[in-house]
């Protein structure tokens, strides 16, 4: 898998911590593999929106990668509830259901960005850097792929 120049937190130079939310274990593992190529660290995982809220409270990640179609509570509702409690939460929706209504609803309810599945690592990498803004630095890595 392609390697990218590591994205670190500006404040302490530590790896960016991710909470990955998807009802598919396969999709979660794939996303975990991708963010690890960005130098990221997995703070937690959740398989539905309700668990995502409790996992956010427990782990306080830098970024949440959130699916939309999930059992119990869908991703957009979970994103809204997380942002209500934590206005600084950075949530990126990652879903195959990327039509305009869903994207607008997600952004209106607090998500910062939207990435269409199947996920292209180079696209997610750029989105992560954009969403983190000045709170992230890209470490120089000789031979990094991006």
């Amino acid at each position: 898998m392609e390697q990218f120049a590591p994205v670190k937190r500006s404040k302490d130079g530590q790896p960016v911590r991710y909470l990955i939310v998807d009802d598919s274990v396969f999709a979660r593992k794939n996303l975990a593999r991708i963010v690890e190529t960005f130098g990221g660290q997995i703070a937690g995982e959740a398989g539905d929106g309700l668990t995502a809220i409790t996992e956010y409270d427990r782990t306080h990640p830098d970024i949440v990668l959130m699916d939309i179609t999930m059992p119990q509570m869908e991703g957009i509702e979970a994103a809204e509830k997380i942002v209500q409690q934590h206005p600084d939460a950075r949530i990126v929706m990652v879903s195959s259901v990327g039509y305009q209504e869903n994207i607008v609803a997600a952004l209106q309810r607090g998500a910062r960005h939207f990435v269409q599945k199947p996920v292209k690592p180079e696209v997610l990498y750029e989105v992560i850097k954009y969403v983190l803004g000045e709170d992230a630095t890209v470490a120089s890595a000789a031979g990094a792929g991006a």
Partner: peptide, 14 residues
């Protein structure tokens, strides 16, 4: 298989 179904249908729905 489930994730593939999810992605194909999601993209078609768009």
């Amino acid at each position: 298989v489930c994730e593939l179904a999810n992605q194909v249908i999601g993209n078609a729905v768009v």
